[in-house]
């Protein structure tokens, strides 16, 4: 829900949504060129809209790489402020790296950032990280340490707290991080 609230704070989000409503079955590239919005931004908006069921997508196969086209569906969502506050309250939780022999990293030691999380060996799944997430993960304390609060790591890496909470949840799910429990 945080990701949806974040994208809705931008007026450009509504420009894209309105365009999509008026022009069904269109791809990210044509939205970007018609509205003069960077394609990465458009793709992010479309991903979030699709995640919450406001748009549907279809893969169009033709010459070259298959492209995804989108159609507006509409709908509504319920903002659960209790749930949001519950997420926000996790910021003081201490986290650390979880020992996991199936996880390895590609990192940039000069920029002090993790570029990729690799799950399951060299030919395993690769999770690309953005700059701030990469710096967040770089600063994560190692296994069996006292850990560090999400809020502090977010501040050190320049991430917004709610983004950091979401990132931590995702990383816990794939086995990179764990919450420190009092021993």
């Amino acid at each position: 829900m945080i990701d949806l609230i974040k994208v809705m704070s931008s007026e450009r989000f509504f420009e894209v949504t309105e365009y999509l409503k008026l022009n069904p079955n269109v791809n990210a590239s044509s939205i970007s060129s018609n509205l003069n919005i960077h394609i990465i931004t458009v793709q992010r908006y479309l991903e979030v809209l699709e995640k919450y069921g406001f748009v549907s997508s279809r893969e169009k196969r033709g010459i070259g790489r298959p492209s995804k086209t989108y159609t507006f569906l509409g709908g509504k969502f319920t903002l659960d402020i209790d749930e949001l506050l519950k997420e926000y309250s996790l910021r003081s939780q201490k986290i650390r790296e979880k020992e996991n022999s199936t996880i390895s990293y590609n990192y940039d030691i000069d920029n002090e950032s993790i570029k990729q999380v690799i799950i399951g060996g060299r030919k395993g799944t690769k999770v690309e990280l953005e700059d701030k997430s990469g710096k967040f993960l770089w600063m994560l304390p190692p296994p069996d340490s006292d850990g560090e609060s999400i809020e502090k790591l977010a501040s050190q890496s320049g991430m917004a707290v709610l983004d950091a909470v979401k990132f931590v949840r995702d990383m816990i799910e794939i086995g990179v991080m764990e919450v420190c429990t009092d021993e």
């Binding site: 020992e99 022999s101 996880i103 390895s104 030691i109 002090e112 600063m139 190692p142 296994p143 069996d144």
Partner: peptide, 13 residues
């Protein structure tokens, strides 16, 4: 130092 702890493949700052 404490022994028998977990390993991290990333550098420690």
């Amino acid at each position: 130092v404490e022994k028998g702890c977990g390993y991290s493949p990333k550098p420690i700052t």
